[in-house]
Design a protein around this nucleic acid. Structure first.
Lengths: 340, 340
DNA sequence: CTGTTAGCGCGTTCAA
DNA sequence: TTGAACGCGCTAACAG
């Protein structure tokens, strides 16, 4: 009988270091050291290992966190997860976190600044070791810092202060690249369409679009709305109006979806009539009619950079000035832009 | 000066109940009671509230969890998040959890049973209050229980024991429904294609498909492979072979994607030549060529049921036999099935 | 209704 | 090298 009789009463409780120590007939700290890989006498080590196994002991993360002040938990705050870019990002973040045996607490703010602040408070309660945030428009660094004092933060797909590490697409370049491509196809009336134009990434893409238009002395034409219902109306009106664009630049997969559904309901064949370039690549992009030309973001790379800098901050390996990492987007040419 | 001088040294530490208590000149438990909404004398309440505000105090979730044995955290374990069904599920789960002021720890198992068990251990370390799991094939209830003793578990989009609460689509009915629809269009050679046929939901859908075929004395034709590269080969071979099906039933969005890309690379126009019904609806489904007829899962409802039963188990409101909740899928008729 | 105190499970001193 | 005792921040039990 391995279990001393005085422990029988505890049989339904989750075992603790003490239980293990008693069974192995050692002190609690020996168990603790063994578990963390500190050297122990082999003979004793074996007794402890045996006790751990038979008791199915597993350290209590809460108690450990309370003691050492680290939770092995990171928070990730996004507008939402149900879109191509963010769901893929989450996927990679989870994998990266797992390799660092860290768990991910996932929160969404739905582009509401108040909800975002609430989520940051939540993360403080949970004492996360670090945070990756795709911040919404109007986020102030001071608010973030004061909500999470002392917690390393990496802005992902967003930027709200030069003093916060951030990882993003070269949005401005990407906007310019896509616009130039359309212009090179001979278009002079390229319109840029997006929802939530105040979101940082979209803002930058718009700047790039304007750069490209300005360079050729063309008039920028923005079709933007705060919500997507509005956007549909605008789109429908514009397409039937006097100032009809001859090509479209769409800044997100959702905007692209809005464009295509609106036009399809209007009975407008996009195919050759109205060339389009979108942002974000997804499985079915090549299969819609016409196959979509898009700017693809290097999601994996972006996430890896973000996680690396976050963990270097957490470990204290990285001190000093914030890093701004910007990665180029690729133009994936299919047919919707007018290419063969 | 609100802060007594002896507290000045602690100014950079995170404030604790004690700090608040001292500043408000009350006992620690009064602060605790105030914070949890237990009645306190108004005059004292105000002093405490003031101290909380000026100190920017927020309770430490770890300490509280350690004390009361509840973390206000649930674990959610999925094969992956980067697909339509799961990313939408995660979205809704997060919202439901937030309303119960609970945080979500997200983990993926990528259909590897070993990884799934690791993730369950992880969740035990984090002492989650409950778990929602889309279990992979071959999961044994005993393993899950022993990995998470005493933790309420709800199987989502999966089923591995009649003794575990579960919420799923009426997969078998849905499979039958879709197949019948194709048969009613006059097809006798309907093939069923999917990856990972051993996954519970797919298994059930296959059964439904077979039911429908058997009922009409038709020969079932399964095109399945463990990975999607294999599936492409099979698909290509089948479509060029002797026994070419005249209609396809695809069991997941990913299978549908595989079918469409394979055929498009082969130069086969799916449009009218080879009718198809898929599973899972997504934004662009109506926009591919031809518009996809699909079975839509009631994701929101499924998640709400899952969360409700999970929390009732956590609260202890729900005792006794496991609930098996099954919701019907809707056939969204577009053109790919052969309808006008 | 309030304050004091013990202990949740762990890691970490400090003596032995 | 090992074990006993303390404290992380909180809440529950108990005493005033």
């Amino acid at each position: 009988m391995d279990v001393p009789s005085k422990d029988v009463a505890r049989i339904n409780r989750r075992p603790t270091v003490i239980d293990v120590a008693r069974m192995a007939k050692v002190g609690a700290s020996t168990v603790s050291r063994f578990l963390r890989g500190v050297k122990v006498k082999p003979e004793i080590a074996e007794r402890v290992a045996h006790a751990v196994k038979t008791l199915r002991y597993q350290p209590d993360g809460m108690a450990r966190a309370l003691r050492i002040g680290r939770t092995n938990t990171i928070g990730i705050v996004l507008p939402k997860v149900s879109n191509v870019f963010f769901s893929q990002s989450v996927q990679v973040i989870e994998e990266e976190a797992r390799q660092r045996n860290c768990a991910v607490i996932l929160l969404t703010h739905q582009d509401r600044i108040g909800q975002q602040m609430d989520q940051l408070s939540t993360l403080r309660r949970y004492r996360v070791d670090g945070v990756i945030i795709a911040a919404t428009a109007g986020t102030a660094a001071e608010d973030v810092w004061s909500a999470l004092p002392g917690v390393p933060i990496v802005a992902f797909d967003s930027h709200f202060s030069p003093e916060v590490d951030s990882v993003l697409l070269r949005n401005r370049d990407a906007g310019r690249l896509a616009t130039d491509h359309l212009i090179r196809h001979g278009h002079t009336k390229v319109a840029c369409v997006t929802g939530k134009p105040q979101v940082y990434s979209f803002e930058q893409r718009i700047s790039g679009y304007k750069d490209a238009m300005d360079a050729k002395k063309l008039n920028p034409h923005l079709i933007t709305a705060l919500d997507y219902e509005q956007l549909r109306f605008l789109l429908a009106a514009t397409i039937r109006g006097k100032n009809r664009p001859t090509a479209l630049l769409s800044l997100s997969d959702f905007a692209t979806l809005t464009i295509l559904t609106t036009f399809s309901e209007l009975g407008i064949k996009l195919a050759d009539a109205l060339p389009l370039i979108g942002f974000d690549d997804f499985g079915f992009a090549a299969l819609v009619d016409p196959p979509l030309t898009v700017i693809r973001q290097p999601i994996e790379k972006m996430v890896r950079y973000a996680m690396n800098t976050l963990f270097r901050r957490i470990e204290g390996d990285l001190e000093g000035k914030a890093h701004q990492i910007m990665l180029p987007g690729d133009l994936i040419c299919r047919r919707s832009c007018g290419c063969v």
